[in-house]
């Protein structure tokens, strides 16, 4: 991929991620997060990981964020817009953020593997098949456990929401 595209999508991601925090309107924040996800998906696609990129859009942008947006709109949060930003949390947030960033940069810069050029992939990768085979052979037990967990969570949600009705 051309580095120009990498920079474009990375900057887009970061800019909209910042907007998520800065925007006072919750709907605007949610939509900024969607754009940020799309930038992330584009980065995955640029790494030839079409499957992960598409799933990123399908699951996060298409399903999770639609539900978020849906709830935000139904609640019609007006209080958040009126809230004034005070100095203490702002400075605290910036300090924590920059500390984390410095740490990340130092760790990544200290890792020798980060400076190696990436070997070229041998042709198009059938990533869906690879992921599926790995999931159903090597990681079969974790997959089953996650499936059971999700089922329990779903049943729990149904039970809780039904109790609310009575």
């Amino acid at each position: 991929m051309s580095p120009a595209l990498f920079w474009f999508f990375s900057l887009m991601m970061i800019a909209f991620a910042i907007l998520v925090v800065v925007k006072r309107n919750p709907v605007a924040s949610a939509l900024s997060l969607v754009v940020s996800f799309i930038g992330l998906a584009a980065l995955f696609v640029s790494l030839d990981a079409y499957f992960i990129g598409t799933i990123q859009i399908l699951v996060y942008a298409g399903a999770v964020m639609v539900l978020f947006l849906f709830i935000i709109m139904l609640l019609d949060l007006k209080a958040e817009e009126k809230r004034v930003v005070t100095a203490a949390p702002l400075i605290g947030g910036i300090v924590v953020g920059f500390t984390f960033l410095t740490l990340l940069i130092r760790v990544l810069a200290g890792n020798a593997n980060g400076k190696l050029p990436m070997p070229a992939l041998p042709g198009p990768v059938d990533d869906v098949k690879r992921v599926g085979e790995l999931l159903f052979s090597q990681y079969n037990l974790p997959l089953q456990i996650i499936g059971t967990l999700l089922l329990v969570a779903t049943v729990g949600v149904v039970v809780l929401s039904k109790r609310e009705l009575k």
Binding site: Y50, T54, L58, A61, G62, P124, D127
Partner: peptide
């Protein structure tokens, strides 16, 4: 001609909801 064309179609179709949600809101 993408290998995950099937999923691509669903991904883009699921993004189509935003226009309508946003118009309504």
């Amino acid at each position: 001609d993408i290998n995950v064309g099937f999923l691509f179609v669903f991904a883009i179709a699921s993004v189509g909801v935003y226009g309508i949600v946003m118009a309504g809101w």
